[in-house]
Write a protein that binds this DNA or RNA. Structure first.
Lengths: 346, 346
DNA sequence: TTTTGTGGCTAAATCGATTTACTTCGCAAG
DNA sequence: CTTGCGAAGTAAATCGATTTAGCCACAAAA
């Protein structure tokens, strides 16, 4: 029944040419001086015969797929899941599909996926990269494939990119904790150490502490590989509390780290915020009503998605992007909840 | 540089036919009696000229895309995000891409998305449906498009499907709560009321209570529309605790409902499990270390994904599926944590 | 009368692979 | 001396749209 009627069938049954039918379908009838009557007839016939264009044929001819790729480290991470959802909505409203790829932060896998999607002729890609530098993307940009980097970016890169003010967010966190009278800090990050977001957050935090004359002892700067967060955090926290040398506050650099720290602090029966305050980067639904609720630097996920999609669409449609809009940095908010409000020390 | 070399270029530069090159590329060289030497030459040239086949052309000719669709109510829900991740991994290992679509439980949107993906000629689809009956899928099955329903299914439907033992899980929950000496139950569900998982869970729960001579008062059977969970739960819980007529336990039928109930019980300062016990359907990372930790019926997400993908792949490869494997029901586990262990009542 | 223009439409090429239906050659059997 | 057959290929059709390059008839201008 369906999927069998072709352009040629329509043309034949109407005694006109395929060209004409094609033009009408694509709304180019007027531009090519096809009579209104004829156009009507064609549209009527299309409805009558229940014609649906073969998207593969069209895509093949025009070299487009109406599909964009979304590449992140792990789609089941809440942060990326929400980004995905937002982007999917924008895409759907513009007639695009989204294909998702999780890289597990494996650089080779990411490259492979990008190459794969490129072969598949996706019209563009939105990428949260795990790579070490921008060279791969500079090539990608040179090859003309529309793409936008989100979340993690590189300084001075050629590709369009959307990120948040990681340095600023970290400074907010630091200033807030300092105000609580805290002097002994731990930072919990993921490795490897080329991830821009993580580095910016560490830098912003350290700088602000430095300005207050405080340094983070190396042993309190925890770095856990992406796939070993649970293990590393468990071991490190245990050692803190066994040795008795304990930070007064922890700054956890993504929602997974925050959750994992909460988990093991609970297991160790460490009371928050009395024994240790905690503030995380990236908010998650349940941080608002755990006991205690968790302070965070909140990222504007909807804005990130929106900006990224818009920048991508502009590239796809070959609109040139003004240089100042080529690299977007969005502000973050601090949300202070119970976990970082120290009982007064005075 | 890339994306420009075609089959014809290879053929020409080697002085052979396109047919030959195509056969070699697709590993049909031997079957067609092409000499090993010749095959070598072709492969060599392909590497040398950095040829990459145009996937669109191939897809167009063969009517395939190496893409599958995944349709769920909301990809940012933890349950579906994890399903998505699992399926994506299987797909990637088999050379498939996954395109995701969130329906927001809107029946018309779901149908539209399915039609859209069908037009796009995806090779198959995995669907957690929001529809009211199986008729749409019976048609889909008749049309020959490979697909598998997951999570939510319909009795006696023609399409392959993978679900969990919702009735059994709900019975486990009920039995466990009864053992705690609880007699007054509330069930928190989403509407509309044609969602099979929700109905089975309610049914299993009610049946088990019935066997113990207990009924759930209608006012304690909460049904919140998918997009109004927060509001409805807030209002209902407030009214419970204002009126003072209070259930001893709540059974929350998905992870969102569980979280939302936790949120408002916390706001109302209701202590768990002393004032009310709670057990949820579907486990989520953080239920294991909230205070109190939350009991759940845990679903085998990896198995669901694996079975669904395998069933889909078989259809795509036109292997017939034995009738007994056409409809898979997977077992669930009960995980008892603090939230449902009542202080003894004796 | 010839040229120029234009409104309305079409034939054929094209995209790049896969697939069908041969061809050609050499050699052995009849 | 023909026929048959397998080995090693090839030319051309095909998938279904888009796009290029015109065609044809008639009117207005030169």
């Amino acid at each position: 029944m369906s999927g069998k009627v072709t352009l040629a069938d329509i043309a034949k049954s109407l005694g006109v040419s395929k060209t004409l039918v094609s033009l009408v379908i694509n709304g180019k009838g007027d531009a090519h001086g096809i009579r209104k009557e004829t156009q009507e007839k064609v549209l009527e016939k299309i409805r009558e015969m229940n014609y649906e264009p073969n998207v593969l044929a069209r895509g093949f001819r025009m070299g487009i797929t109406n599909t964009i790729g979304l590449i992140v480290s792990d789609i089941s991470n809440r942060f990326y899941a929400r980004i995905a959802r937002n982007i999917e909505d924008f895409a759907w409203n513009h007639g695009y599909n989204v294909v998702i790829c999780s890289t597990d932060e494996i650089i080779e896998k990411e490259k492979e996926q990008i190459r794969f999607l490129k072969e598949r002729k996706v019209d563009g890609m939105i990428i949260s990269t795990s790579q070490e530098n921008s060279s791969f993307f500079d090539e990608l940009a040179a090859s003309g494939l529309p793409h936008v980097l989100i979340d993690r970016t590189f300084k001075g890169m050629k590709s369009a990119n959307v990120s948040v003010d990681n340095v600023g967010g970290a400074r907010m966190a630091a200033r807030h904790l300092l105000k609580q009278g805290i002097r002994k800090f731990s930072v919990v990050a993921i490795s490897p150490d080329h991830i821009s977001t993580i580095n910016d957050r560490i830098m912003g935090f350290e700088k602000t502490l430095m300005e207050a004359g405080i340094k983070i002892p190396p042993k309190w700067l925890i770095r856990a590989p992406f796939d070993k967060i649970d293990e590393v955090v468990r071991v490190k926290l245990q050692s803190f509390y066994q040795e008795g040398d304990i930070p007064e506050a922890m700054f956890t650099l993504n929602n997974n780290l925050t959750s994992t720290c909460l988990k093991y602090l609970a297991k160790l029966s460490v009371s928050i915020p009395d024994e240790v305050a905690i503030i995380g980067f990236d908010d998650v639904f349940y941080f608002g009503f755990t006991k205690p609720s968790v302070s965070v630097i909140k990222q504007p996920i909807d804005l990130i998605s929106e900006q990224a999609f818009k920048l991508l669409l502009k590239q796809i449609n070959k609109e040139s992007i003004a240089k100042k809009h080529h690299s977007v940095v969005l502000p973050v908010d601090i949300i202070i909840r119970e976990s970082s409000i120290k009982p007064s020390k005075s």
